[in-house]
Each structure stands twice: as C-alpha cells, then as structure tokens.
Amino acid sequence: MATAVAEDDALWAAVADPTRRRVLDALLEHGEASTTTLAEELPVTRQAVAKHLVVLDRVGLVAGRRRGREVRYAVRAERLDDAAEAMARVAQQWDRRLARIKRLAESVQAEAGTDFQHRQGD
C-alpha cells in the first residue's frame, strides 16, 4: 500500500517538471486536448508530450478519454486541489522552523537575564 508520503512524493515529482506544468496549463486552458493538439502548442515533440501525459495520468492529475480515433486528456481538478493542499501544507515548514528559532532564541535571551529592549538602552 502506498503511503500518503509516497503519493505526495509522486505528485510532487509530477508537477516538478516545467514541461509538465505547461502541459497542465494548456489542458486547463482547453478543458480537453489530444496529444497532437498539445504538441502543436508546446515546444516539444508529440512523443515527449505523450510521455509527460503518462506521468501525469499515473498520479491522477489528468485523465484520458477516447474520442473516436484519438484520446483527449483533461485535468482532474480535484486531484490538482490535493496537490495544492499538499504544497500548502509543506509551505508552512519554513515558517515553523523560524517560529522554533524565535522561541529558542527568545528563551536563551531571557535566561541570559538581559532583556533585549534593555540591552538596547544600555
């Protein structure tokens, strides 16, 4: 069973590639597009687009639907929301660390018995 971390990791990897982000962008713009359409719009080959779509499909960011002879892809918005949520969660990490640094430093300062404000007034 995949852990939540492993899943997030795959999502992360999927959106970490600039071309894949452009593919997602293009899909969001079109609502739905085939590999050929995407390749016409992006500065990459059809094969490259197909490869990126496989990666995005694997993590569930896009889904393909057969329309006649071609497969049309669309972004799965709910999955994108998941990704954003995961990112928003990790975005707090530096803030948490800085908050810990603040707490530590202020307690060290207090223990040293020299209130910073007073020190300034020396």
Partner: peptide
C-alpha cells in the same frame, strides 16, 4: 515535500 514548498505555492 516535507520541508519545502513555497516555490510551488
């Protein structure tokens, strides 16, 4: 994933 993410936001 654990530690970063601002850029991705």
């Amino acid at each position: 994933l654990d530690e970063h993410g601002q850029g991705w936001e």
